[in-house]
Design a protein around this nucleic acid. Structure first.
Lengths: 350, 350
DNA sequence: TTGTAGGCGTTATCAT
DNA sequence: ATGATAACGCCTACAA
C-alpha cells in the first residue's frame, strides 16, 4: 500500500534557514525598512531599489512572516475560527463552505475544529482558538453555559452562534426555523388526513430537538388532536435506535399512519427500517438529503439552506470586525416543505 | 428573518485592552518571567506565588498570546493547512475529518481553504498559508506545476499531496487505486456478460480521470474486446452534461448494455437520467455514496475510504514534523467493489 | 525561587 | 527616498 519514491532526504546539506527581511536587506544592500516597504508595496521607493530588493527576495526565497507581522500590527491575525460537531456531516460542511467563501473575499483564513458534541472539548477549542487570536469565532455549541465568553465578547471579539443559541450569554445567533418547519410538516400530514402521527426524534433537550417537538405538539393541539405519547420515540440519534423505534411503531396494535423524523440521520435509518413493510406509512423528515427524490417513494422533507447559515454568520462577523455596534441579532433561516411523495401518502382506509 | 436582541454595544465604556503577562505581573506583584513560569506550568515556583498569579490571571482575564509565543519559540505555529476544492463535497470533508482527528491528538489546528479547482487560487492559498507559517500542508492539487514548492520543501516544510500526485515535484503522495478500481468494475461487468460498456467520465486529463479511463481500456484490451469510442463520453462533470450523455447513449441504434461512471457526481446525474428508461442498463459507479443501497435498484460501486486518506496524510505529516527523513512515500488507498444489484443486471438477450 | 536582558521578525515613528 | 530605533508579547539564557 505504500512505496518509497525518492528523496531529498539523502542529501546532507542542512536545510537553509528561512531568510528574514534582514537577510534580504543585506543581500540587496539596503536597510530593513526599505525591504519592508517593498514587501508591502509602499510608495516612495526608488524603482531601481525596488527592483534590487525584489531580486534578493526571489533569490533567497524570502516569504514574509505573517506571525511576526500580526504581532506588530494591531493583532490582526486575519483568521477566524469555526467550531462544529463534525465536518464530515454535510450540514456542517455546508455551513463551513458558506463561511469560508465570504472569508476568502476578505482574505481571511478559516480554522475549523470538531467538538464531537463534547462540551469540554468545545471549551478547550474555544480557548485554543482565542489564544491564537482568531479575530472572531463561529460556534455550533455543544456546551450548556457560555458565560465564560462574556469578558472576551466585551473586549470586542465577535462570537456568532449557529444552529443553537448560546446559554447564559447574549450574542449574535443564527438558527433555523425549527418550530415552523415542524409545524409545516405536521400540518401537511394533517391535511392529508393523518391523525396518528408518530415522531422519531433525537435528544429533546437539545435546542433544535426541543423546538421541533414543540412544533409537533403545538400543531396537534391547534387542531384538537389528542397526543398519544406512545407514538413518540426520543434519543434516536443513533441509527440503530431509530431503526428499533421504527419497528416498535410498526408493530403497535394500531400503528401510526404517518411518521415524522426530526433529522437527516434519523430519516435515513427510519427509511431503511421501513423497507421491510408492505404497508408504508406517510413520512416526512426534517432536513433535506441527497437522493431523497430518487428513492422508490420520493421523500417529502422540511428543507433549508445550511450554506446560508454560514454566509449570514460571516456577514455579521465581518460587520462586527469592521466596527458595527448594532444590537445582537437573531437570524432565523426559513424552512420550506418539499412535497415529493412520501408525505402525501394517504392514511389507510379504516 | 432577523431581529435585534439586546446589546452590550449600548454601554460606552471602551472595551478593556487585552492584558499581557506584564499586566498580570504588575497585578500580582511579581516579574513577567514568573508569570510566564506559572502560565507554562513550569516547576520551581512557590505555591503562594503561583496562587497569586493565578488570581491575577483570572481577574484580568489574561490569555496567553500564542502568536507572540510562536514567534519566540522556534516558529512552531502548531497549525497545519489543507487545501481542497470544496469542503462541501463529502469526499473532501471526509479527508478533512480524518486529518483533523489526528491533528487534534497533537494539539494542532487545521486551516482549511477551498481552491475551487483554480490553479491560481491554489497557489495564492499555498503562499498565504506558508506566510502564516503552517508547519505542514496537505494539498489536493488543482495546479499543474508544483516546482515552486521545492525550496520550501527543502527547507523542511512537509507537503503531502492527496488524491493526485504533484507535478514537477517529488513529495509524499496519497492516491486511490484509481486504475485498479476501474479494472474491478469493468471485469465485473464483463463477467456478467457485458460487451458494450459505456463510460461517462469527467476530464480525462486530470490524474484520477486518466487513471480510471486507462483501467477501462486496459481491461477491455486484456479481454480482447474492441473498444467502441462512441460509447465514451468525456468532460461530463457537470450534472447536465452527464445527463445529456446518458440520453445520447441510450438513444444509440445499439445502446450499451452497461454504463460505468467515473465519479460520484456523475453517477447521480446518470441515475437521474436513467429513470426514464424501462430497459435499464447495468451500472457501476466509481465512489460510493449515501443511499446507494436504497435506490429502486441498489447501486454497485467502486468504494474506498476517503477518511483514510486524511489520517494517512496526517501520519506522514506528523512523522515528518517529528524529524522523519525516510524517502517520500506514495501510498495507494485500496478500492473495493460493492455489488448491490445495478452492476449485476445481465445484458439483454440478443 | 525569582528576576534581568535580549531577541524572535515584523511594522511604526521619527529622523535624515 | 532611505534608514535608525523602538516596540509588539512572549520565551530563552543567564544571573542573583
Amino acid at each position: 500500500m505504500s512505496t518509497p519514491v525518492s528523496s531529498i532526504h539523502e542529501s546532507n546539506d542542512p536545510p537553509a534557514a528561512r531568510p528574514t527581511m534582514q537577510d534580504v536587506a543585506h543581500a540587496a544592500g539596503v536597510s530593513l525598512k526599505t525591504v519592508s516597504r517593498v514587501v508591502n508595496n509602499e510608495p516612495r521607493v526608488d524603482e531601481k531599489t525596488r527592483e534590487r530588493v525584489h531580486q534578493a527576495i526571489a533569490q533567497l526565497g524570502f516569504r514574509r512572516n505573517d506571525i511576526a507581522r500580526s504581532l506588530r500590527q494591531k493583532q490582526t491575525s486575519s483568521t477566524i475560527g469555526l467550531i462544529i460537531e463534525d465536518i464530515a456531516n454535510p450540514f456542517y460542511s455546508s455551513i463551513a463552505r458558506g463561511l469560508e467563501k465570504v472569508a476568502q473575499q476578505y482574505n481571511y483564513m478559516l480554522i475549523i475544529s470538531n467538538s464531537e458534541e463534547n462540551a469540554l472539548r468545545e471549551r478547550e477549542l474555544v480557548n485554543a482558538l482565542l489564544s491564537r487570536r482568531v479575530e472572531g469565532l463561529c460556534i455550533v455549541p455543544a456546551g450548556t453555559d457560555h458565560s465564560y465568553l462574556a469578558a472576551e465578547l466585551r473586549r470586542g471579539t465577535p462570537f456568532i452562534f449557529l444552529d443553537r443559541p448560546p446559554l447564559q450569554l447574549q450574542t449574535d445567533t443564527i438558527v433555523l426555523d425549527n418550530r415552523g418547519g415542524s409545524r409545516q410538516a405536521i400540518r401537511h400530514l394533517l391535511a392529508y388526513g393523518h391523525r396518528r402521527i408518530a415522531v422519531i426524534q433525537g435528544d429533546p433537550r437539545v435546542y433544535t430537538g426541543a423546538e421541533r417537538i414543540a412544533g409537533y405538539y403545538e400543531t396537534l393541539a391547534e387542531h384538537g388532536i389528542p397526543c398519544d405519547e406512545s407514538l413518540i420515540y426520543s434519543n434516536c440519534d443513533e441509527a440503530q435506535l431509530a431503526h428499533q423505534a421504527t419497528h416498535a411503531l410498526m408493530s403497535l396494535p394500531q400503528p401510526p399512519s404517518a411518521i415524522f423524523s426530526t433529522s437527516n440521520r434519523i430519516s435515513i435509518a427510519v427509511l431503511r427500517a421501513l423497507r421491510s413493510y408492505t404497508q408504508q406509512p406517510a413520512f416526512i423528515g426534517f432536513d433535506d438529503f441527497d437522493l431523497a427524490d430518487m428513492l422508490p417513494t420520493p421523500i417529502t422533507v422540511v428543507a433549508h439552506d445550511p450554506a446560508a447559515m454560514g454566509t449570514r454568520a460571516a456577514e455579521i462577523l465581518f460587520a462586527r470586525l469592521a466596527g458595527s455596534t448594532v444590537p445582537f441579532q437573531q437570524t432565523i433561516i426559513p424552512t420550506r416543505l418539499i412535497a415529493r411523495g412520501s408525505g402525501e401518502l394517504p392514511p389507510p382506509r379504516a
